[in-house]
């Protein structure tokens, strides 16, 4: 038996082995090219940096060490600093929360208007899709800086900037969810004469709200980080305080340490709470 099939098998076998080897060679080459690309990009980035990687590496702990030692020397002032910067932290959280809420509301509207089968004006679906694409592509900093020029520094430019980006980002995710919504309740509501808003509010929203909520919570996590960063370029909140303490340099590092602690704790706590609720929501669903 074995002898009978041997010639045919060995032909297939060699062909298979040759193919496998070729595939392995190709993926090997691809991997090599990728790694070379990564290394060369790193070298380009390093050459355009003020300090080199190797020369900077030993100093990487200098700043954290200075920070910790200075904070430790004046540990008695730490509770005072934490209390001082707490209102800024609240402002940062408020920016994130308000922009998530406003952005999510905008995202829901954009998503429903750009989902096939649900859209109020089916012909305008591409328009709303492009709008979401552009909103999503706009980095928050661009809108924030332009608005700071018009409105002056403060939390509102950051809030508008993050809300616009959030509307685009959530709109896309929401629209993917809404596409899978069951149309039967919508048709039922249409048959009793419900308007578009009623069909969406009563027919679609109850189906999709757990998913929307889950995405919204995830976005809130992201937006807390974004609002801290925007503060650093002048948009209020704890990021702004951080920049001020950093520009003062040595002697204010105990304050910087307090801000680092507040920011770190907030991000971790919000992450934990949000992932806890997201797990709960997805557990209910399945």
């Amino acid at each position: 038996m074995a002898k009978l099939y041997m010639p045919a098998q060995s032909g297939i076998y060699t062909a298979y082995m040759a193919q496998t080897q070729r595939r392995r060679l190709y993926s090997g080459i691809l991997l090599l090219v990728f790694v070379l690309l990564l290394i060369s990009s790193f070298q380009i980035a390093e050459s355009r940096n003020a300090g080199g990687f190797i020369s900077g590496l030993p100093q990487i702990l200098d700043f954290p060490a200075g920070l910790v030692s200075e904070a430790w020397e004046r540990i008695d002032r730490m509770p005072g600093h934490l209390a001082t910067f707490f209102p800024s932290l609240v402002e940062t959280i408020n920016i994130a929360a308000a922009s998530t809420l406003i952005g999510a509301a905008g995202g829901i509207v954009l998503a429903l208007l750009s989902t096939r089968g649900l859209a109020l004006w089916p012909r305008l679906i591409p328009l709303f899709r492009r709008t979401m694409d552009i909103l999503r592509a706009l980095p928050e900093i661009v809108i924030a800086l332009v608005l700071i020029f018009i409105l002056g520094g403060g939390p509102v430019p950051a809030m508008i900037a993050i809300a616009l980006h959030t509307a685009g980002a959530l709109g896309k995710l929401f629209s993917e969810v809404a596409e899978n919504a069951d149309l039967k309740p919508v048709e039922g509501l249409a048959s009793v004469g419900a308007g578009w808003f009623q069909r969406m509010w009563l027919g679609v929203m109850p189906q999709v709200s757990p998913n929307f909520l889950s995405y919204g919570l995830l976005r809130f996590e992201i937006n807390i980080r974004a609002s801290a960063i925007l503060g650093f370029v002048g948009a209020g909140g704890i990021g702004y305080d951080l920049r001020n303490t950093m520009t003062w340099g040595q002697g204010r590092f105990d304050q910087a340490a307090a801000i680092f602690i507040l920011l770190f704790v907030t991000i971790v706590v919000v992450d934990q709470i949000s992932s806890h609720y997201r797990n709960k929501i997805s557990a209910v669903e399945h």
Partner: peptide
Amino acid sequence: TIVLSRAFGPGPMT
């Protein structure tokens, strides 16, 4: 970003 720019200076690598 802040910690690293203290060590490596400003630039894309940081």
